[in-house]
Design a protein around this nucleic acid. Structure first.
Lengths: 198, 198
DNA sequence: GTCTATAAATCGATAGAC
DNA sequence: GTCTATCGATTTATAGAC
């Protein structure tokens, strides 16, 4: 009995997912350039030959990761808008969720940040890589602007305030990934919120 | 007339300095792994062969950078202690100086951060690379503890507070280095200080 | 769909001339 | 002290068998 087209498709989807998950881990810990195709293949428990069956090259894998992250963050932004409560409550909720996500999976945030300035990546891809952080920052900015109208967020340039929050999250992600991160203290949401509280 | 020993020494010192300055730029923009010896040599305006006359290998260059940065930050910490005024005033001075330094030379901060989690670097070197950030954080912590005794710094875990400030500085440095950093807003010292102000 | 073997290119590091 | 030529190892990517 031959494999059906449907089950073949399922196999492909699973493999692709395996590879992407492995790539996140490897990119986060080695950086794009040092990450070897063989490393990703090993982490995904496949041969490196098969990897080229799913992606044209290393940049394609990276691009797929960035696109997924961009999509995830857009959904997150949407979820925040759907959240009930005033802007301050939604800002609290958002930062709490972000810090939780960072605890479970710091890898993707670290990839996002580390490759921003990396000239080893093509300019087109690097520009793509700026998107997730931009979405995050823009989302926070919206909440800050609304919060200022409510009087619960301190006056001041909302871009500056959203930027500082973003820097914090990015800096934390890389520190968490360090093998010497035992002493890294995860800030509480309230600690970060002090930055913008009026 | 042959070159004297003294002038030879001066040539060596200058070359070494040229190479280190070039290495900072290249490491910051490409990361340790993607940074090619040829790139560093070109930026330093020497042949790549000569580079090996001054350093045994790529890791040695990186180690020299880290050591210098560690030394510079130790001196900075000492300068802060020498500063007059209470802890709050010295904390303000310190953050102002750090942000100024980041404007002029974001490269070394970015190198510090980006290689923290990079497994392409030997464990010994990576541990060394944790020192500069640790010194920075420890210095800020001291000021925070003193500031809390004065009542001008908010109560709370000083390690957490110092950590958040450090994350901000690190995150900012990488964003500034990105070629798409036109929209990055340098936070004012007062903005960061809100995180710890009582 | 998956693997192994291999081609082709890149890059760190060395040797030797000046 | 400095350079060019080159080796050797690593790694991306492909080809072809199963």
């Amino acid at each position: 009995m031959p494999r059906t087209e449907a089950s073949n498709q399922q196999i492909r989807d699973e493999r692709r997912e395996q590879i992407l998950q492995a790539a996140i881990k490897v990119f986060a810990r080695q950086g794009f350039s040092a990450a070897k195709i063989a490393d990703i293949a090993k982490a995904a428990q496949t041969s490196h030959g098969l990897l080229y069956h799913y992606f044209d090259n290393k940049e394609e894998i990276f691009a797929a990761l960035i696109e997924r992250t961009t999509h995830d963050l857009q959904q997150f932004a949407e979820a925040i808008r759907m959240q009930s409560g005033d802007a301050w409550e939604r800002l609290t909720w958002a930062l709490t969720r972000i810090l939780q996500g960072l605890r479970r999976q710091p890898d993707i945030y670290a990839v996002m940040l580390q490759e921003l300035a990396n000239e080893a990546i093509s300019p087109e891809l690097r520009q793509l890589a700026t998107r997730p952080a931009a979405i995050l920052q823009e989302t926070l900015k919206q909440l800050i602007v609304e919060g200022q109208a409510e009087g619960r967020v301190v006056a001041g340039d909302p871009d500056e305030l959203a930027g500082v929050l973003t820097f914090c999250i990015e800096g934390l992600s890389v520190n968490v990934l360090s093998p010497y991160s035992a002493s890294v203290i995860f800030p509480k949401p309230e600690t970060l919120l002090r930055l913008v509280k009026s």
